[in-house]
């Protein structure tokens, strides 16, 4: 195995593109180093992107925030600016692993690992986040939900790297939230994860919403009927019940070591209700 630490994104992309065998980009490494422990692991090349200028920065423009691919989730959690704008995204990112994992892991890495249970991804999807991608054939920006295509598989082409995650600035009276269920209080992979992002009008009615579910299907689900269930409401009990039912029905989970089908269906509805309530409160809803 070869280890490289390029100084520019283009160098990183061409190294990855030129590899004959399997090649990996290394940002936080909290997933990559785990699979490296496997006796069957075999890689020709690991490209450490943390020395690339600017990749460890959170930037603000007039329309958006961008979170560089090497920004650790711990650093993300220290950004007052993002905590105010997208508290649900930040809390989701800060739920990944332990304090130690937080010191290394990144949201871009969490996205590109393409686990259906990744904590930050439902929150990013609900937030309408976009991935800024560089590659040998130029740059492109796509919605984050288009990156994972199956467990462990992404739509990225050979040599492509996610440079940053972009989060738009929010309209006033907006809020988001992420809740996940794990059997312990920490140190677990989500059994169910639910993110809700919504905006209210002056009367306090939900005008727009995005609801995303994690760990209940091969990829994170953006559930449009769930948004429809609460748009136009003040999250009254009937709306919340509808939301819960829609979310439970949208799940296509499996039975595995972390939970059962029945459990995941039921709990996704419960968490959707609770997350919507938090997002609503954050948006200033009454």
């Amino acid at each position: 195995m070869q280890y490289e630490r390029p100084k520019s994104l283009m160098d990183a992309a061409s190294l990855l593109a030129g590899a004959k065998g399997s090649a990996y980009a290394l940002a936080g490494g909290t997933d990559l180093l785990v699979i490296m422990k496997n006796d069957d692991f075999d890689a020709e090349l690991v490209v450490d992107i943390k020395s690339i200028e600017g990749l460890d920065e959170i930037r603000e423009t007039s329309e958006a925030y961008t979170v560089g691919a090497a920004v650790s989730c711990a650093a993300l959690g220290e950004s007052t600016m993002l905590k105010e704008a997208w508290p649900g995204v930040v809390e989701a990112a800060n739920l990944i692993g332990s304090t130690q994992i937080q010191g290394r892991c990144t949201v871009a890495g969490n996205l590109c690992n393409a686990s259906p249970a990744a904590d930050s991804v439902p929150a990013l999807v609900a937030a309408g986040a976009k991935a800024i991608i560089v590659g040998p054939n130029g740059n492109r920006t796509i919605p984050v939900e288009e990156i994972p295509v199956a467990p462990g598989k992404t739509s990225l082409e050979k040599g492509e790297i996610v440079e940053a995650i972009q989060l738009d600035k929010r309209a006033p009276q907006s809020g988001d939230a992420y809740l996940r269920f794990i059997p312990r209080t920490e140190m677990d992979i989500a059994v169910v994860g639910v993110a809700v992002s919504l905006s209210l009008d002056d009367k306090g009615l939900v005008t727009s919403a995005r609801v995303a579910l994690g760990a209940v299907a091969p990829t994170v689900l953006l559930v449009e009927p769930a948004a429809e269930a609460i748009i136009g409401t003040k999250l009254d009990d009937a709306a919340l019940e509808r939301l819960a039912d829609v979310c439970s029905a949208a799940c296509q989970p499996i039975d595995d070591k972390r939970g059962t089908i029945e459990f995941r269906k039921k709990v996704s509805g419960v968490l959707a209700r609770r997350a919507a309530r938090i997002a609503f409160d954050r948006a200033g809803g009454k």
Binding site: R184, T185, E186, M187, D188, I189, K257, R258
Partner: peptide, 14 residues
């Protein structure tokens, strides 16, 4: 589940 991630012994916050 041959690992501490999915063999869930109590953590401090539990």
């Amino acid at each position: 589940n041959p690992g501490f991630l999915d063999y869930r012994i109590p953590v401090c916050s539990d």
